[in-house]
């Protein structure tokens, strides 16, 4: 994120987004939390900004420090209410855009070591999701998943593609 001159108390912030233009706004940092377990190949940071025009911007940044170039996967969302931001955070899957090389040892692997490497990668993936959920729960409190979601997600895994905020009954009526 980059700062530049702006409204008093607010700095210009650029929040990169995977595959899209960054969000640019005058913002004030409210919170920044990070999870960087030394035994995991991913460092995750969540920032929450208050936007000068009103509302909030939540940004997620996953860094892959073990890969050359320190690759990143970044996501951001602007919303007027906390519920939308919590939905954005809790439905985010940190593994969604990770390259397989983030979890696997450098190729080529001897065939004899492949099963163990794949098993280790599977464990890393599960650990990454668990750390992500713990980070959110510790920082933002428990999230009451919308009814029906738990039944479809018994393992507690985040969905691969977080959807837009759910419609309220009023919005559904308007659309119909």
């Amino acid at each position: 994120m980059t700062g530049m001159e702006g409204a008093p108390g607010f700095d210009f912030v650029l929040a990169p987004r995977q595959g899209r233009r960054p969000l640019g706004f005058q913002g004030r940092l409210l919170a920044r939390v990070e999870a960087a377990p030394p035994d995991l190949p991913l460092r995750s940071t969540v920032t929450l900004h208050e936007a000068a025009p009103g509302g909030f911007v939540c940004a997620i940044r996953h860094r892959l420090p073990d890969l050359p170039g320190a690759e990143e996967r970044c996501y951001a969302l602007a919303a007027a209410d906390a519920a939308t931001l919590l939905h954005f955070l809790h439905t985010h899957d940190p593994l969604r855009d990770l390259p397989a090389s983030a979890l696997l040892p450098p190729a080529p692997l001897p065939p004899a070591l492949l099963p163990a490497a794949l098993a280790e990668a599977a464990m890393l993936g599960a650990r990454l999701r668990a750390v992500w959920r713990a980070l959110l729960a510790t920082s933002f409190g428990p999230w009451p998943a919308p009814s029906g979601r738990a039944a479809n997600d018994p393992a507690g895994r985040a969905p691969r593609h977080p959807g837009p905020p759910e419609e309220s009954e009023h919005e559904r009526d308007q659309r119909v």
Binding site: G24, A79, A80
Partner: peptide
């Protein structure tokens, strides 16, 4: 060069709102 998307004018932004 300003290639970012401003917030406010298009609020709320959804993660799947198309660029168009």
């Amino acid at each position: 060069i300003n290639v970012y998307e401003p917030i406010g004018a298009y609020e709320p932004y959804g993660v799947y709102e198309p660029m168009s």
